[in-house]
Amino acid sequence: MNLRKITALASIVILSLAMVLTGCQAAPSATSAPTATTAPTTAPTSTTAPTPTASVTTDPGTTAAPTATAAPTATTAPTKAPTPKPTATPVPLSGTLISAGSTALQPLAQQAATEFMALHSLVSVTVNGGGSGSGLSQVNSGAIDIGNSDVYASEKLPADAADTLVDHKVCVVGFATVLNPGVTGVTSLTQAQLISIFTGVTTNWNAVGGPDLAIVIINRPASSGTRFTYDKYALNGAVEATGIALTEDSSGTVRSTVASTPGAISYLAFSYLDATVTAIGFNGIAPTADNVKNGTYKIWSFEHMYTKGTPSTLEQAFLNYMVSTTFAPQIIALKYIPISQMTVLTH
């Protein structure tokens, strides 16, 4: 009898475990199921990705509708965003909004969330990091409402998944080449010089007008959005040599590593520049917000917020707030660039 009780208890436990097990295996198989079908399509995407012209022309094409809607809101939001609120007060905004993804966009999104929640007391907005790739997969799988990304969704997701996401460009971010302050005499590098450095051909600073000091390359991981943008616009898609560069996971660690490593070169978003590193020009043009706006400084990209399909009222309100004039001073304060101030929208 005792034995029976034990076996009964054990079987209950095993049964419940099995239930959890099957439930969980449903999850991976659910996620891996699309893999099976999309695997063939991923290969072409990754092969077309490195050709910058192709993806640049196709991306605005495929996301033409969202860009068209997002761009006008960017300029008209100032008048639009505040007005619907008083008139629409009968139904105040409420609910929760979860966004995740790009760590580069996170501080800005978090600031926006705080201010947005101050305006709408019934709304709760949470902002998570995790990286652009995870942000895009999560919004695609429906785990979150808004996926933040440094790059176009088509760079990360299989084409059919990327097509279901709607792009909202929220701001522009510029990237600067940064050097350890010990590298004196170098104030700007040309594209050819940068390619030569990052592919491991030039290995000493004296070849580009600096001191006699070995060059130490500090990279972001190959999957990083920042590295993608930098490779595309600063290095013209050149393949960086592996095995000669240190890799740092985040902008913060890149900055402190460049600051402390003699002869170091890396790249950072404008928002991370400070006195501990020397930011230098590209092709003779200084890395300033003004030069990005007027199109002379080429290393910049859009920051994206993706929604699954058409955004809900709440999502749209938050996205509107991100590009509103109310929020523009914050964007500028954090050294991002509001899209409304850009005179060029392509590289």
Binding site: T96, I98, M117, S124, T126, V127, N128, G129, S134
Partner: peptide, 23 residues
């Protein structure tokens, strides 16, 4: 915790000790 508890806190009202309330 980056992937489970998240990286931000919603608004919290430290006078509200009702465990079911969102804030």
């Amino acid at each position: 915790l980056l992937y489970t508890a998240g990286m931000s806190s919603p608004r919290l009202d430290f006078t509200n000790w009702n465990p079911i309330s969102a804030t």
